[in-house]
Nucleic acid binder design. Sequence first.
DNA 1: ATTGACTTGTCAGCGGCTGACAAGTTGGGC
DNA 2: GCCCAACTTGTCAGCCGCTGACAAGTCAAT
Lengths: 199, 199
Amino acid sequence: MPARSDLRERTRQAVRAELVTVAWELFVRQGYDATTVDEIAAAVGMSQRSFFRYFSSKEDIVLGKFQAFGEILADALAKRPGEEDAWTALRRALDWFVGGSERDPRYGLELLRLTDQTPALKARRLEQQTHWQELLAPHVATRLDPPATGANDLRPAALAGAALACMNVANAAWVAGDGNQSLGRLIDEAMRAVRPSAF
Amino acid sequence: MPARSDLRERTRQAVRAELVTVAWELFVRQGYDATTVDEIAAAVGMSQRSFFRYFSSKEDIVLGKFQAFGEILADALAKRPGEEDAWTALRRALDWFVGGSERDPRYGLELLRLTDQTPALKARRLEQQTHWQELLAPHVATRLDPPATGANDLRPAALAGAALACMNVANAAWVAGDGNQSLGRLIDEAMRAVRPSAF
DNA sequence: ATTGACTTGTCAGCGGCTGACAAGTTGGGC
DNA sequence: GCCCAACTTGTCAGCCGCTGACAAGTCAAT
């Protein structure tokens, strides 16, 4: 029942990682749509069928990168001081991304550019963010003035969703400016517009 | 240059409408994924190839319904009194949907249920909402305290995006409650959570 | 009635994706 | 070291969404 042996699981992850690396290179060079799964598989020396044994879809190779972000965001939010109000805590949770954008903007720029320019990827990314919203909501719930109780309370999801919408707007502006403006400031601007009284 | 003659254009629209009706029935009965384009085409007595002459994709048959909504929303927002603050105007613009949900909830419920339960459709619907955001933004811009000037100002898009996020949360809750709760109240709750001082 | 614009079906093909099967490889207990 | 069971792999065949090309037909306007 413990699934695969550790060794097998590790090699599996290694193959996945190589697939991501190779595919990413092709995507950046010739575009997502113009790159076929056959091509990716051939580039790492495996059959197309085997590719789909590592990734359930071509999109997954890109979207996998975003999956982890949701958990990181939720973690960051959970770790904020309990007295912090929800909106401020959400803003601070996003600092993890801001930090990344400052250390090395290239990675984020590539990721956002590709996902924004490819409609299929953009759509999937937005869908995935609704999962982020669900991960964030419980940690928002405890920070509301009358704390949220059941799942009937719309406030946590609304705040999380609004914050993510602001993040998207800021990200788009950041990409449009080739990463030259401070992502942190852009997020501030977007989030302050929604809540003028905040931080 | 005037494109198709009126008659041809009208029959074209009629065929499109029938295609939508028939396809919608199949989608509701057996699910979106379980319905093939061949099936839809056969049901109206045309070849699959001709189907794609009326709709550029299978998704378009469903998403076409949403396309008009963005324009309606933007219109409604534009028609709000100029002194109204942005957030209130956005809330009021959404009343058009609220009205529809009260007149006949079934249509909206079906539409939302199908699009929420089918990942591909959910993703595309969210993507389309980023277009709504762009349509709304200019009408938000004029209602800001220091009115927004250039496209560099993130505030209009942020507010529009946040409002749409609230709408989505409210819609989801509305569907979860089988349309028994007032959609207007749910939107109020979500939007007030983001802007406690509002309306 | 003729012409030219428009629509249609058919066919052939690509790309993403899946099930089934057979062949091969490998980790771990003996 | 050997062996077996577990796992991986490639191949093949096929479905579905979608597209280009072509030939046959329909229809509006003259």
